[in-house]
Amino acid sequence: MSSSVIAKPAMRGLLAKRLRFHLAIAVTLSLAAATSYRFLVGESRKKAYADFYKKYDAMKEFEAMREAGIFESVKPKKAK
């Protein structure tokens, strides 16, 4: 029978080593998520807003709301 000695586990610095490993993974995943959100969601929203405001007529919208009676302080135009 051979009696071999089991090596002691390396306990000194184990927490710091594991934290560095998991912190690197967390930073990488968060940067990937932020970048993908920006390009998949942010850019499409920015384009949609730009397209909307290219065709938006504020005065036409105001007149439509005034005719609908939404505003209390503005009276509808009288038909001539």
Rank of each mutant, 00 (worst) to 15 (best):
S4T: 15
V5A: 14
V5M: 15
V5W: 12
I6G: 13
I6R: 15
A7P: 04
A7F: 09
K8Q: 15
P9Q: 08
A10P: 02
A10M: 06
M11T: 15
M11S: 13
R12E: 14
G13E: 02
L14V: 05
L15H: 10
L15V: 06
A16G: 10
A16K: 04
R18F: 04
L19K: 10
R20P: 00
F21A: 03
F21L: 03
H22W: 08
L23Y: 07
L23E: 09
L23N: 07
L23G: 05
L23C: 06
L23T: 10
A24K: 11
I25K: 06
A26W: 13
A26D: 08
A26G: 05
V27T: 07
T28S: 10
T28K: 08
T28A: 04
T28I: 03
L29N: 06
S30D: 10
L31R: 04
A32V: 12
A32N: 02
A33D: 08
A33I: 09
A34H: 13
T35C: 14
T35W: 14
S36C: 11
S36W: 15
S36V: 12
S36M: 14
Y37W: 15
Y37A: 11
R38L: 12
R38D: 11
F39L: 13
F39P: 01
L40T: 06
L40C: 08
L40I: 12
V41I: 11
V41K: 11
G42H: 10
G42M: 10
S44M: 11
S44I: 06
S44D: 12
S44R: 15
R45V: 12
K46D: 09
K46P: 01
K47A: 08
K47P: 00
K47E: 12
A48H: 05
Y49G: 01
Y49R: 05
A50P: 01
A50S: 04
A50H: 02
D51W: 01
F52D: 00
F52W: 02
K54C: 00
K55E: 01
K55M: 00
Y56F: 07
Y56I: 00
